[in-house]
């Protein structure tokens, strides 16, 4: 059948539901094994973080769309958490294959990594459903990107870091959703990463310092 805008949206939702229908709201046995392999087990912090962010997300969602729609916020969050655990597992498998290690203690205890990954999963869910609701809401009820960054108090540059890996390991994302994440990437590169408190500036400073040290070393050798 011809691919109408409505058909495209329905396909994207169906695809998301198909991916997440059988997924769990809790970490899988495989993820638990990764957690147990860590020098410091991150499990309790991960569960608590998900719970805390869930409370904030549901509150902000209800504030934006009205208390009558609070249950929809809970459903969106539940889907986001399923996708978060699913992608985390795929990322760890991919990294295990690449690096031949099973201990990801530092990564799995990194708060920014988890917030970024959960934000990306939630953004996929929110973007999937956003086209089925009104597109002409006032700014106070606009839940499209970068709304999720404000909810999770996350820097755009940190969110940017997970996008490519997310697309790489979640092979069931629709073309529409990949395009959406790519648009988020572009917005971050073009403007959101360049705000005054962005971590990008620290990285540029570090990079310059390394370059200066290397130049000094080179001239000393000469």
């Amino acid at each position: 059948p011809p691919q109408t805008p409505v058909r495209t949206v329905m396909n994207t939702i169906q695809q998301l539901i198909m991916i997440l229908n059988t997924a769990s709201d809790q970490p899988s046995e495989t993820l638990i094994t990764y957690f147990n392999n860590c020098t410091v087990n991150p499990k309790e912090n991960i569960l608590k973080r998900v719970q805390d962010i869930g409370c904030i997300f549901k509150e902000k969602f209800a504030q934006a769309v009205g208390q009558g729609c609070a249950e929809i916020g809970s459903q969106r969050f539940r889907l986001g958490v399923r996708l978060y655990y699913r992608v985390m597992e795929s990322m760890l498998k991919s990294e295990e294959e690449r690096l031949a290690i099973q201990n990801f203690s530092k990564l799995l205890n990194d708060n920014t990594f988890h917030k970024s990954l959960l934000a990306c999963a939630l953004e996929v869910v929110m973007a999937t459903y956003s086209r089925t609701t009104s597109q002409h809401l006032d700014p106070g009820t606009d839940l499209s990107f970068p709304w999720i960054l404000n909810v999770l108090n996350l820097k755009a540059f940190d969110f940017y870091k997970v996008i490519e890996s997310f697309i790489k390991v979640e092979t069931n994302l629709t073309r529409e959703m990949i395009k959406h994440l790519e648009r988020c990437e572009h917005r971050i590169m073009e403007s959101l990463a360049w705000v005054s408190d962005s971590p990008l500036f620290d990285l540029i400073k570090q990079s310059k310092a390394r370059e200066a040290a290397a130049n000094l070393h080179e001239s000393t050798c000469t």
Binding site: K106, L107, F113, S165, I167
Partner: peptide
């Protein structure tokens, strides 16, 4: 027609991006 998503050329993984040596 939008171009396909361009993955980075370097073999970089999520661990590298969060500075975990």
């Amino acid at each position: 027609e939008v171009l396909e998503y361009q993955f980075g050329l370097e073999e970089e993984g999520i661990r590298d991006l969060f500075d975990c040596d």
